[in-house]
Each structure stands twice: as structure tokens, then as C-alpha cells.
Design a protein around this nucleic acid. Structure first.
Lengths: 245, 245
DNA sequence: ATAATAGTGTCTCTCAGACACTATGAG
DNA sequence: CTCATAGTGTCTGAGAGACACTATTAT
């Protein structure tokens, strides 16, 4: 295992972000318009180079803040930050036509945001339903640049399976939310309808999963609903079962 | 996003392997003795540099073959290969004192092997119980080099949770195995005893999980046990429940 | 015989899935 | 009033956990 710098091939290392949110009953991903070749004009996942003295997660959080203004927290904390976790790493030698690039993808789950603040160097940014981006449920329209469709698909699958056995779905909600809003998150992420009564019984019956915060709201119409915060229990046991699994 | 080579910082990219197996009722990991500084003489996870035109998974499979002679299969196939999957990527700027190294860790689940064939450039190789390597259940003896204790802990946790809802535990067994042998794998990986009757009912009652292969064996003593192969069903639903979870 | 493991059966309790039903707001 | 959503109750069937019991080998 020699470490002579001339002995190892040099790589560029980037982070790519799969930023997911739920908007109008649909799971959406943040995409940016590429301003340069290759894939100029196509949509891509936000991302960028890791700096020389920067940790991978730090680079991901920095890119997230540049693109959306969101503050990420790795885990724990209660303020209105987004959930950020490492997804996977993609390093096929031909994934970038110009050079050898290894990309560490991060998954971000964010509450519904007003509008992408196309900050930084990206030409434009928009939320797009993942069904359209992945060609499942709509015209197989604009494909994502590079291998970003694969990365996005992996991120969506991770999100779908993780909300089964964790309280991560609350990351898609504002700080205070109702049981019905949380249920609509599950329905959007899984793409299936859930029984409101059984869902209510399940989430309110799991100790530590939801913490009542006192108030009520009628922002969904109908009878006023209690407001909750996400509880400390991050594990959901037994898990919420995804129908037709 | 400029791609001028002088604009991006160069990284070295390596793969590190968490190779797990079950030996004598204990979950064990493959470790190699470091022959160079830093951490000379300490145990470390096997691994090495990714070559210039090599995919990450290919590099992991190559290192695995060099260290153990095992052939990995990404998924599918039925022959006596080991299971290999990407685990996570570690890139703290200070994780290697000499240079900026990003390491993509892979998890390998292998059946019990005769003995590590300390091939390649590693000075020596051995199977060590993960409890001893991680300091939980024994003297906090020789710590692993670099951040390899963290990587190993992540790999063990991945293996523990994955056998809950998949047929991956069979990757620790020879091609043909008995229900009792499979149960002892679960007990070793989770570190808890399981009820033999309930376990038998669960795994034989799940369609496609086990395929009877016809013969019997008494290699465990007692009444002869039927031999099975792993079935095509990779998902286990509902999952096997880990006690005291 | 004993000791070991393999395999089946049976009971209970929890819980998911399927409802019906009531409660409280907006229009 | 109607319509929407919130929240509770009730039944049923699947299955996990906790056993007892029988079967088949080695010694």
C-alpha cells in the first residue's frame, strides 16, 4: 500500500443532493438547470465539489444552504432544519465524460418551501414531481443529466423505506403539524391511500412518536385538528406497513 | 461549476471492506496487519486504492478476491459467492494523516471460510470477533487503525438490521444449510437466543424464503435435519423481529 | 437408557385492516 | 342543511411469543 502521491490516481470528489419535499400531494425533488456543457440546459441534481479541507457532510450542508437557504441538522435537534443523511456513492468511470468524478450523494428531506431560491451558480431551480423525473407516471420527458436519475431513484427508494420504521416523515412537515398532514405525507411518498382511522390509531398509539403541543388548526378544513411535534422516538416498532408490499 | 483540473482539489479514493462471517457462534470480521506507517503493526480493514479506470464495486470485488479468494456477486446468482454491497463513504479531512483520502466502504457477508489466505500485500490476516474489535464484550484491546472501528460498527449495524427483513442471513451459510444452522447465524449476528420452534415455523412458513433440496444432514448432531437452499424471495414480510428491539 | 437437535401443535395476546359511528368546523 | 376532516369504537384474521410434545439420530 504505497502512498507516494504519484502512485495513486487523482479523483475529483463532488456531493450531489437529492432534496425531497411534498407539495400538493406529490413527492417532489429539487432540480437545477445546467448552465454549462455537458448536458447544458438539462435538469440535474444540485451539487458541487468538495473543498480541500471540508468534510463530506459539511460540503453537502453547504451546498444545501447555497441552493435553498435550508439549515441541515444531521440528527437530533428540534428547530426547523432539514434532515440530511448520506445516501450512496457513485463512481462509474464513465459517469462524467470529462474526468474521473466520484460523487457522494446525500438525501435531504425538507418541509414544503415557498420557492427555490436559485442562489449560487445555478441558472434556475425548480421542484419537480419525482414521478415525472423518473418517467413513471407521465411523459418520459426531460431526463436528468449524468446518472442523476439513478441517484434520484435510490434516494426516493430510501425515503420510501425509511418512513416505514422511523419518524422521518415528520421531516417533511412544518414544526407543528396534524395527524392528517402527516398521513398525507405518507400517502404522497408511497403513492397509496391510507385509512385515516387506522393511521391515527397507529401514530397516536406509539409512545414518544408524537407530542401534543396544545393548539388546534383548521387549515385543512373540517373539524379542528390537534397539533403535534415530532417526538423523540426515532424508531417505530412495529413498523408502519406499506400496503401491497 | 468550472471543471478546469486546477480548480478542483485532488483526492485519493480507496475502498475498505467490512468482511463478516460467523465462526463458532460469533460474528467475526476480517482484519489485516498493517505493514507500514501510520498505524504500523495495528489491525485494519482490508482495502486499497481504486484504479484509474475501475468502478467502485469492481475495486471492492478485486480487493476481496485478493484478500480471501472469494468471488462476489452483486445480487442474484446462486453459486457460492459472497454478498457484496456498498456501505457508506468516509471522507473526514483528518482521517488519514498523510493526505486527503475518501474511502468507500463495502460490506461483504461470507460463509465460514477455512482460513484467511493472507494474499496480496497484507502482512497477515485473521478473523476477529467483532465484539473484541469494537470493545463491547472483552478487553478494549487492539483498536483498529484510522477510522476503521467506526466503519466496522456501521457495517455490523447494517448486517444486523438487514437480516431482519431480507434473506441475507443465508449469505453466511454454505450453499445448502439446515434451519438450525440458519438460526445460529441469526443468534450470532444479533447476539441473542431465539426460540427454535418459532424460528422454524417462521422461516419455513414464508413462501419462497427456503427451498428444500432433498437431503438431510446430521452434522449438528441429533435428529437429521432437512437441507435447504436460499429461495428467490429476498424480501421477508413481515420481518423477523429482533428481540428487545 | 440419555443427550442432543428436528419438527409439529396449541394457546394467548397484540395488532393491522376493515369497517360504523360520532364530533366539530366552513359554506 | 351539506360537506369536509377529526377522532373513537368494534370486529376479525394473521401472526409472534410461549410453551408442551413427539421424532430421530449418536453415545
Amino acid at each position: 500500500m504505497p502512498y507516494d502521491p504519484s502512485e495513486y490516481p487523482p479523483f475529483a470528489v463532488t456531493v450531489d443532493l437529492v432534496v425531497l419535499t411534498v407539495r400538493q400531494h406529490a413527492l417532489c425533488a429539487l432540480t437545477v438547470r445546467r448552465g454549462e456543457e455537458p448536458f447544458r440546459g438539462q435538469w440535474a441534481l444540485p451539487g458541487g465539489f468538495v473543498r480541500a479541507d471540508e468534510d463530506l457532510a459539511t460540503a453537502a450542508a453547504r451546498e444545501l444552504a447555497e441552493e435553498t437557504g435550508l439549515l441541515a441538522h444531521d440528527s437530533g435537534s428540534r428547530h426547523a432544519g432539514a434532515h440530511l443523511e448520506q445516501l450512496a456513492t457513485y463512481g462509474d468511470p464513465s459517469r462524467d465524460p470529462r474526468m474521473r468524478v466520484v460523487s457522494v450523494a446525500y438525501l435531504v428531506l425538507a418541509p414544503d418551501l415557498p420557492a427555490p431560491t436559485a442562489g449560487g451558480d445555478a441558472g434556475g431551480a425548480q421542484w419537480a414531481p419525482v414521478g415525472r423525473l423518473l418517467g413513471t407516471g407521465g411523459p418520459a420527458g426531460e431526463r436528468l443529466a449524468f446518472d442523476h436519475a439513478t441517484i434520484l431513484a435510490d434516494g426516493v427508494e430510501r425515503a420510501r423505506s425509511k418512513i416505514e420504521y422511523s419518524s422521518l416523515a415528520a421531516a417533511f412537515c412544518p414544526v407543528e403539524f396534524t395527524v392528517g398532514e402527516l398521513r398525507r405525507v405518507y400517502e404522497a411518498v408511497w403513492g397509496v391511500p391510507l385509512d385515516p382511522r387506522n393511521f391515527h390509531r397507529k401514530v397516536t398509539g406509539t409512545p414518544g412518536f408524537l407530542v401534543p403541543v396544545g393548539g388546534t388548526t383548521t387549515r385543512q378544513g373540517g373539524r379542528p385538528a390537534q397539533l403535534f411535534r415530532a417526538g423523540g422516538a426515532s424508531a417505530l416498532n412495529p413498523p408502519m406497513l406499506r400496503p401491497e408490499g
